[in-house]
Amino acid sequence: MNEKRHWGLIVNPIAGIGGPVGLKGSDGIDILNEALRRGGRANSAHRARMAIQYFYEQQPGVQVIWHTADGPMGGDVVRALAKPLTIHRRTSTKTTAEDTRALAEQLLCQPLELIVVVGGDGTMRDVLGVVRSVGLEGGVYPPIVGIPAGTKIHSGAYCVSPRAAGLLLAKVADGKVVEIQSGDVMDIDEDAFRRGVVRARKYGEVRVLTDGILVQNVKSAAANDEEEQLLALAEGVVERWDDESLVFVGSGKTLAEVMSIKGLPNTLLGVDVVLNNEVILADATESELLEVLRLYPNQPKRLFVTAIGGQGHIFGRGNQQLSPAVLSQFAKSEIEVIATKAKMAQFAGRPLLVDTGDASCDQWLTGPIAVWVDYNECWYYPVASLPIEA
Rank of each mutant, 00 (worst) to 15 (best):
L289T: 15
N33G: 08
S133C: 04
G16A: 00
V274M: 04
R199P: 04
D225G: 08
G166M: 01
A80E: 08
D187E: 15
Q363R: 14
M186Q: 04
V78E: 00
T356Y: 02
A102W: 07
V247P: 04
G74D: 04
R194S: 13
I369L: 08
V383E: 07
D355C: 11
L81Y: 02
G139R: 08
L209M: 13
E137C: 12
D189G: 00
Y380M: 15
R38G: 05
M124V: 01
Q311D: 02
Q363T: 10
D27N: 07
G196E: 08
N224K: 09
L327V: 05
S251H: 13
R201G: 06
G8P: 12
A345C: 12
V383P: 13
P142N: 00
E205F: 12
A234W: 08
T285V: 05
T93H: 15
Q181G: 09
G146K: 13
C109P: 03
G175P: 12
E3G: 02
R302P: 03
R90M: 09
N319A: 04
F315R: 01
R163S: 13
C378V: 12
T210E: 07
N33E: 06
A102R: 14
V197K: 12
G252V: 13
A35W: 06
V177Q: 02
Y158I: 01
A102V: 02
D355I: 12
C378Y: 01
P13V: 14
R5E: 06
Q329I: 01
I115M: 05
V62M: 01
D70H: 08
H154K: 09
E278R: 13
L81P: 01
A342P: 11
W364K: 09
V130N: 14
P351N: 01
A384Q: 07
Q216N: 06
A284Q: 00
S287W: 06
D242E: 14
V127A: 09
V130G: 14
R37L: 00
G357N: 08
